[in-house]
Amino acid sequence: MSLSTSIIPLVLAVLVGTTAVAQSRTPVGRERKARQLTLRAEEPPVLHPLHVAAHEVTTVTFDAPIVPESVDRSVLTPFFSRVAVHEDVLVLKASMDIPAGKEPVLTVRFAGSGAPARVAFVLTTVTAEVDSQVEVLRQGRTAQDLGKELADLRARCVATEAGLATLRAQCALRGLGGAVLMGDVTREGVEVTYLPDPSLSPGMTAKRPHVLYRTESTRALSISLFNAAGSTPWIPGFARMTPRGPSALPAREFPLLIQVKQLAPGEQATVVVEWHALPDLPAGTNVTLELLDVKGERGVRWEEVAP
């Protein structure tokens, strides 16, 4: 047997082995899932599966405050490169797929009284999917709760649609010429003022400056919003303006203008809200101005703004 003939089987064996190793290291495509998990006080405690995967981020949000110290990080360290626990959110990034038979159990305790007092997850890896977002509801909402939420959403849609109708009419008349033609800019010019830092900013940070543009008929506030690393994505919602004092006038809502669909954790973008002067407000009446996400929960708030 010649030397070249004897080497061929060895080379083939090495190539086949190399191919097998390469195939075993190829990541499996998994579908990213977003789902809800409803806990009920009358049900016995069970382990809820939480599907994680190597290099994938899994975000778990809670509708009630949790105790961050209740999360045992030591059981997660061997499998996760990132573990972030906040008042109502848990962020996990796995460094590897969880080996079969070594699935860690994660227990999260809720703050305060109420039932259930805790929720437990078993962290596993499956071939088909990975949990990207899981919303944990401590108490299931009743039909009455859902009906009220639907009515609120419909009312909000009506208010937002009214604001969008004005914006659509302006879209065909862009630029300074369009603003002059629409009467938004007159020979009186544009006055520029600056708002102080927000009095409240649940889950978000407003970077200075907070610029308020005023013309004879129109106002526009421009701010730079930052979504902190470790938070959930911020999806733009609406601005709410509530008159202060004894006027008892209803709150108004306006659409937010932003060039991105959402702010991922660690991202920053300019947000603008525009409204017309409010002649029905009594002289000297200030408003509370809020810029919020689609759920009306996270955003920034100013308590005393001259509209």
Results as ranks from 00 to 15, higher is better:
293 D>M: 02
35 R>W: 12
118 R>N: 10
119 V>M: 04
194 Y>S: 09
16 V>S: 06
39 L>S: 00
162 A>S: 13
20 A>E: 08
23 Q>I: 13
139 Q>R: 14
120 A>H: 01
149 E>G: 11
261 K>G: 15
167 L>R: 06
267 E>H: 09
288 T>H: 07
114 G>S: 02
125 T>I: 01
165 A>K: 05
161 E>F: 10
135 E>S: 15
100 A>F: 11
90 L>N: 08
268 Q>K: 13
192 V>K: 06
151 A>I: 08
80 F>A: 06
30 R>E: 02
142 T>S: 15
234 W>L: 01
202 P>C: 12
74 S>G: 12
204 M>F: 11
156 R>T: 04
250 P>E: 00
220 A>P: 12
25 R>A: 11
243 P>V: 00
252 R>E: 01
176 L>H: 04
265 P>W: 04
104 P>A: 01
180 V>P: 01
74 S>H: 15
107 T>Q: 13
232 T>Q: 14
49 P>M: 00
192 V>Y: 03
126 V>Q: 08
73 R>H: 14
304 E>L: 07
206 A>Q: 04
115 A>H: 10
72 D>L: 09
38 T>A: 07
304 E>Q: 09
183 G>F: 01
84 A>L: 15
243 P>A: 03
288 T>P: 06
62 F>K: 00
23 Q>V: 14
72 D>G: 10
243 P>M: 00
73 R>A: 14
81 S>C: 08
238 F>H: 07
134 V>R: 02
34 A>G: 04
41 A>E: 03
61 T>Q: 09
175 G>V: 00
231 S>C: 12
45 P>D: 01
296 G>T: 04
232 T>E: 14
274 E>K: 15
130 V>L: 06
19 T>L: 12
43 E>G: 10
253 E>G: 00
165 A>S: 08
4 S>M: 07
300 V>L: 01
231 S>A: 15
16 V>W: 05
297 E>Q: 15
158 V>N: 12
205 T>Y: 13
115 A>S: 13
51 H>T: 15
54 A>C: 04
214 R>H: 13
137 L>Q: 13
202 P>V: 11
160 T>W: 11
172 A>F: 06
120 A>Q: 04
286 N>G: 15
44 P>F: 01
264 A>D: 09
173 L>K: 10
79 F>S: 07
141 R>C: 05
74 S>F: 13
104 P>R: 03
177 G>R: 03
122 V>A: 09
6 S>H: 12
137 L>S: 11
33 K>M: 10
148 K>Y: 14
125 T>V: 00
209 P>H: 09
122 V>R: 12
61 T>V: 14
144 Q>A: 15
115 A>N: 11
34 A>P: 04
181 L>P: 03
157 C>K: 13
131 D>N: 02
300 V>N: 00
255 P>C: 01
93 K>E: 15
34 A>H: 05
67 V>D: 14
195 L>Q: 05
247 S>M: 06
176 L>C: 07
66 I>F: 07
263 L>T: 01
225 L>V: 11
153 L>N: 14
196 P>F: 00
152 D>L: 07
289 L>I: 06
39 L>A: 02
278 L>P: 02
34 A>N: 06
56 E>I: 08
307 P>I: 10
68 P>T: 04
52 V>F: 01
85 V>C: 06
147 G>W: 10
173 L>M: 12
72 D>C: 09
281 L>C: 04
96 M>H: 09
100 A>N: 11
301 R>L: 02
58 T>S: 06
182 M>T: 10
208 R>E: 13
59 T>H: 04
202 P>D: 12
131 D>S: 03
